[in-house]
Amino acid sequence: MTLPLIPPMLATSGSLPPPAADTRWAYETKQDGQRVVVYLPGDGTIRLRARSGQDITAAYPELHPLATALGTRSAVLDGEVLALDEQGRASFQLLQSRMGLAHAPARAARRAAAVPVHLVLFDVMHLDGRSLIHLPYTARREALLSLGLHGPAWSTPASIVGHGAEALRATAEHGLEGLVCKRLDSVYEPGVRSRAWIKIRNMRSEDVLIGGWLPGKGRLSGLPGAVLVGQRAAGRLRYVGGVGTGWSEAERTELAGLLREAATDVCPFDPVPATPGAYWVVPRLVGEVRYSTRTRNGMLRQPSWLRLRPDLAPGDAAADIPDDMV
């Protein structure tokens, strides 16, 4: 059977629905992985396509047995490929070692032995030769659950209706990326970033030291495009990432003056980060940044600037980097 190519529906960043509308929404855990559309024509084959439409089937050999999970039934499924850390949480950094191997099946097989992946399924857009995209979320969810797709490397996680605030709090307490809110009456909109699906990331904040900056381009010419930040750990200033968002133009201009005053020819980070074109500063400016999570080597993911902390001394920005990341 020839199955239709269906680009995945995308969620819009936002906040929880108002309490009065809570029971009209379903809540699913937001996963930190690679979005994938699964094509099962019912002939014992499987095709996995990334959000870009690229065929990535060969990158994930442990998912190939899913080809026979539905027998001769055909389906197009929506899901996320995850790599789990020692605590059972999705780690995008681990997954990166598995991505990009679609054209190297032998390497993919070797990496699969070292870093296995798991596929979570959360929607079905086509089933038994019939399109389901015009059905509401509740009907598609019922159809998906009826398939009983739970296997050695794939599963269909639960969703809940209502109790959004409790669900979001639970994801934060368990160190998960966040929550996806889906309106119960929402149809599936292929390739559309829809307000019917809302994604909420759990963000954290920490104090950091500015140790350098990268010049801006275009309208930011002459201003810092990003600051390079670090935290003190094990007696040294560890580079933890570049922050390029979160300022107003006035704040960025003020920061440019402070960076000029702190200029130095010596990189304060140990080890020196690979940041071509960087300008270094004496690490005396403390700032607060917001971020989603840390990578396995302590880098901040998706950092954004919150504020300068003139009330803090440089020594107050000691790192809260776990020992195994130092």
Rank of each mutant, 00 (worst) to 15 (best):
A108M: 14
A113P: 06
P105S: 12
R110K: 15
R110Q: 15
P116F: 12
H103E: 10
F92V: 08
A59L: 05
Q93N: 09
G129S: 09
A112I: 13
H103R: 13
H118R: 13
A113K: 15
V76I: 02
L84V: 06
F122K: 08
I133W: 07
S91N: 09
R111T: 15
M99Y: 00
F92A: 05
V120N: 05
P65L: 02
E80Y: 00
R107V: 12
V81R: 01
S74I: 06
H64Y: 00
V120E: 10
V115C: 13
S74H: 05
E62S: 07
I56E: 07
Q93H: 10
L70M: 01
D85Q: 02
G88T: 04
R130F: 11
S74C: 11
P105F: 12
L119K: 04
Q96N: 04
A106W: 12
A112C: 14
D123K: 09
V124W: 11
L82K: 04
L77W: 01
F92R: 07
H64L: 14
F122M: 06
G88R: 06
R98D: 00
V76H: 04
L132S: 03
E80R: 00
V117M: 07
H118P: 09
L132N: 02
H103A: 12
R89A: 11
P116V: 14
